[in-house]
Amino acid sequence: MTEQLVGAATAAPPADRDGREAGARRTAQLRRWRRRGLLVLGWLAMLLLWEFGSWWYGSRLLPRPHEVFLKAVEIVESGNFVTDFSASVLKTFAGFAVAAAVGAPVGYLMGRYDYWRAFFHDGVTIAGTIPAIVYAVMSLIVFGLSNLGPILAVALVSAPYIALNVAEGIRGVDRSLVTMSEAFGRTPRQIRREVLIPTIVPFVFAAIRMCFAVAWKVEALTEVFGGRNGVGFQIRTEYQLYDIGAVLAWMFLFIAFMLVIERLVLFRAEARLLAWRPEERGTAL
């Protein structure tokens, strides 16, 4: 009798279960569409606000959205886009590479050894709190109008973030996994490759995301102050010509490019490398 009761309570008839599952799927789909709808509405609201601003201040002071769009098309067609963007991208990546080459080993030492942590900690913290504009100005004073200025500025801004994140990653290594590896006779090299490095990958991604957003701004800012090419240089030129439409067009192209890199490169690389994490599996598997 008890078995019958238990059976009746736990096993729902298949038809009922199918109906419930279909209902849950429909609700989830509806929720997805509602989210997309709100996203589009948000964009429309922003454009309307912009149109209103253009009408209020006049399109000379604040060009209308479609004027800026046409200007962006013009910039892309003129070929300047490719030249200046590639100049900015190269400088940013070069700065990033320098930051990683310096920041990652410093972070490793800070995370692994208490003495090195004591040695570097305050210096890295101070370097991380100095405003980016100070780095931009200093780099220009040191390197003048050459490409090295923006590269150094990006490196100086990014290196502390990378060092601190790598250090945190190393400190977060699960000691029990290291003990397990030792008990099975794994070599220190194997432990570094299979335990330490995978542990710090999420921290490195956090550092890259954080740095990426800041590095671009610093790079462009340095070019505004004293560049001979690049997006910042173009923004300054258009500003001097009082062409606000072109300034905005360069800005939007800049944003679009950043989003593309963020979504297509960083997001995918993260989803692939961190596929083991439950929060990533939803997107990666």
Binding site: L177, G185, P198, V201, W276
Partner: peptide, 27 residues
């Protein structure tokens, strides 16, 4: 001599699949 160890907790590498976890401890 080779040794194997089973711990109180599983101590698996979360970033490796089950089979790759088993292969990690193999020479």
């Amino acid at each position: 001599a080779r040794m194997g160890y089973v711990f109180q907790d599983p101590r698996l590498l979360p970033w490796r699949s089950v089979l790759r976890n088993m292969m990690y401890v193999q020479d």
